[in-house]
Structures are given as structure tokens and as C-alpha cells.
Amino acid sequence: MKNFSGGWDRVVAFMGALVVVTYLIQVLGGRLHAATSIIAILITLMSLAWVFSGQRPGPWSLRPIIACLVILLVAGASHLILPATTTESAVLLSDVTAVTDGNELVVRGTIDHLGVAHGVPLAVTAGKVSLANAFILRTVRTFSIIIKLENQDPCVVGVRVRAAHQTPVGPLSCQSSSR
């Protein structure tokens, strides 16, 4: 009987058996985690039986394993030295709110970013009027900008917050707190 597979036929048959058994267990209402616990025990027992049966498992020759490890190490090192991704910075503003008591406008929010070097410039506007500019350091995740109001009622036109080169968030609902 010819057999060129060197034991890989057992590997694929075992994979097929795993698929069938786990599928039947979860279809018949069993919990997969219970099934995988049983399978883990079976794998261990079978592996031990295989090792101690005197047969040297065919697929587990050392030379191809070492060659594969070397190649994968080189791949990992190459990927680190020669990254295949472009550095793209992005900023996400969320949960931005505005509260005014007539004298001050307090704008709060959360800022998340990737690839930002130093920080993120923020601009607060009401219509075409610029109310404030702030620079949020990259280590800061939540921001709070307090703006003194001088005879302004930004709630009329709506308050917007914009990070550099981004679409503004807003108009934000202006909530008045009691004096």
C-alpha cells in the first residue's frame, strides 16, 4: 500500500472529525465549550498514545519546522523594518456638549486619535464667529474649553467644534444652567 502522506492524512481526517463532532454537538443543543473541553482531553490522550506508540509522527519532522520558523522570523523582522502600512493620522471627536449660563460657554468632549504627533488643534465657532481655539495635547482624552461670553448668545446660531481639517461637530444643543 502506497502512502506518501507521511501522516498528514491522519491530520486532515482528524480535522474532519473535529468539524463533524463539534457541529453535531452544537446543532443538537449542546454547548460548544463543553464539547471543546472533551475534545481537548481527547487530543491530549491521542497525542500521548501516538507518541508512546513507538511511531515517529510523520508530519512533525524537525527540519521543515525549523525552516518554517526561520522564514517566519525573517518575515516578522522584515515587516517591522519595512512596514507595509502608511502612517495616517486621524482624530475622532465624540460626546461633545455645550453648556452656557450666559456668562460662560463650556464645551466638553472626548477626543480619540491615531498617529497624531503632538496634539490636536480645536476650534469652537458659533455661526461665522470664532469663539475659541485650543490645542489638545495627544495625551489628553477629554477636553473642556471654557469661553467667556461678551454679549454673545451662541445658542442662537448653534455651537460647532472642529478639529483641524475635519467636519465640525454640531450644532450642539446649548443647555443653560441656572445662575
Binding site: 522564514i71 525573517v74 518575515a75 522584515s78 519595512l82 512596514p83 507595509a84
Partner: peptide, 16 residues
């Protein structure tokens, strides 16, 4: 194969 791997990684970096 290691040299081959390095060149493939280089090509990906060039394209990135």
C-alpha cells in the same frame, strides 16, 4: 527562502 521573504516584504513597503 529568507531572501525571497525579505524581497516580498520590500515590495509591500514600496507599495504602501
Amino acid at each position: 527562502l529568507s531572501a525571497s521573504t525579505f524581497l516580498i516584504a520590500l515590495s509591500m513597503s514600496l507599495a504602501a
